[in-house]
Every structure is written in C-alpha cells, then in structure tokens.
C-alpha cells in the first residue's frame, strides 16, 4: 500500500512575518521557509507505517514554486521514497490544491493520504477534507493516533471536549494534529541520500486542473494592537487592579 503525503512550503513558524506596507500581502521576501510543521508530522507517520510494514512506499507531494523541491528533499530525508512536484507560480488556494491532489490520487492509487490539519500561513484547515470529498473517501481529521489493520484505519481524533475514535475503510484521508508523533531529526547521511531519490515534476495543466483562485484578497492589514499594560508589584496590587480598575472579578 502506498501512502501519499502532501507537504506545503511555508514561512518558518519561528518567523514573525509583517504585513507589507501597501497592504497587498505579507512581506515574505528573504524570510526562512520550512515545511509546514503538521506536514512533517504527516511524513513521519507515513514513514513509521512503512517501518512497521503497513505501507510499502511513501510519496511526498508539494504544489507551488520551484523552491518547493527543497521541502520535498526534506520529506525524503525524513524517509519518503520519492516525490512529485506540481510546479506553478500561481496562487494556490485549498480547493485548487485538493483538485491537484485528486488527480495524483487517481494516478497513484494510494491506500492512505496523510495531510497536515492546517497550513500555518493561510490557517485554512481545508485541503484534506476537500480532497476526501473530491475522491469520495472517508476522512479522519485532527488525528492523534493511527492504527492500520485488516484493511481499515482506526484513528483517534482530537475534538472539542476530548477524543473520538473512528474506523475508516481504506483508502482514506487523514489529517494530523500535534500529538500524533514527534518527527525525527533529519541526519546528514539521510539528507545526502534524499538528493538521489526520484523527484518528478508535473504542471497543473498536465493534471488537467484549473487552479484559478476563487477568493480574491482585497487587502491585508495589521490586527488591532493591544495598548501597553503595566507591571504590578505584588499579588495585592494585582487583586486591587482587577477589582477596582478592570472590574473583572
């Protein structure tokens, strides 16, 4: 069984990005880019399933600009066997990504598709669910535990109030939450090995997908800031402020 893992190249989670002064978007020129953290967890999970003998091949996919190939090399350094780069300079929204991924699912016929629950740049939390809809496959989002046996995946999900467990027939779409695993560190030998692994390139046109955005960003603005607060000397001063100034207790 193959596992397909979509990985997105995003601004590193440690970078504090700023809005461009003309309000057209974010200033991401020359900032550090990394693999979306949830996608690292997705790759790690797929590689662990391969190590357990459940999965036979892990295929990483990234859609976007040429530099996505760096992200794909990282995925292969973690342990993906090969990679597919859907190369385009166009703005990609989740519905378009889901359509590109559907075309690849049709071609590769994976038993599992594991995505991140959310890209930390657009904060959409959509692509996996959309892919499940387009492929008419069952979905388990926000996974904190995945077990595969007898042609089904048993997935524990993080939901409001606690945890829920679902059993899905395969093929299935899973999206990762933070507690699913802790991705391994990539080692230098594995980075070297990853350079030799196959990386195929296709275009949205090759896959027959129209990626035209459905949402237009009219403007991007800084959020309203908070006005500076004060430091209080001790607990008594804090209680006094909360009671008499803020009046919240």
């Amino acid at each position: 069984m193959k596992a397909l893992v979509p990985v997105k190249r995003v601004v590193d989670y440690n970078v504090k990005v700023r809005v461009k002064s003309d309000g057209t978007g974010m200033d991401i020129a020359n900032v550090k880019m990394s693999m979306n953290p949830f996608d690292e967890i997705a790759i790690e999970e797929a590689v662990r399933l391969k190590e357990k003998g459940v999965v036979t091949e892990v295929i990483a996919v990234s859609c976007g600009v040429t530099q996505c190939q760096e992200t794909l090399r990282t995925a292969m350094a973690i342990g993906a066997d090969r990679a597919i780069h859907v190369e385009t300079d166009a703005e990609l929204q989740p519905l378009a990504v889901a359509k590109l991924l559907k075309a690849l699912v049709d071609k590769e016929q994976p038993g599992l598709i594991i995505l991140g629950k959310q890209a930390i740049d657009d904060d959409c939390n959509q692509t996996g669910q959309m892919l499940a809809a387009l492929t008419n496959l069952p979905q388990a989002t926000f996974a904190s535990k995945v077990e595969v046996a007898d042609g089904r995946a048993q997935v524990t999900r993080e939901i409001d109030g606690g945890l829920e467990t679902l059993s899905l027939s395969l093929p299935a779409v899973i999206t990762t939450d933070l507690r699913l695993n802790e991705p391994r560190y990539v080692t230098l030998p594995n980075i070297m090995k990853a350079k030799k692994k196959p990386l195929d390139k296709v275009s949205p046109a090759d896959l027959g997908v129209d990626v035209t955005p459905r949402l237009k960003t009219l403007k991007v603005a800084e959020p309203a800031g908070r006005k500076a607060g004060i430091k209080v000397a001790d607990v008594a001063a804090l209680v006094d402020k909360l009671k008499n100034e803020a009046k919240v207790i």
Partner: peptide
C-alpha cells in the same frame, strides 16, 4: 499576525 479581507 494579519487580517485579510477576502471576496468570494
């Protein structure tokens, strides 16, 4: 860190 205004 930013608020986007989007039109559908």
């Amino acid at each position: 860190n930013a608020i986007a205004t989007v039109q559908s």
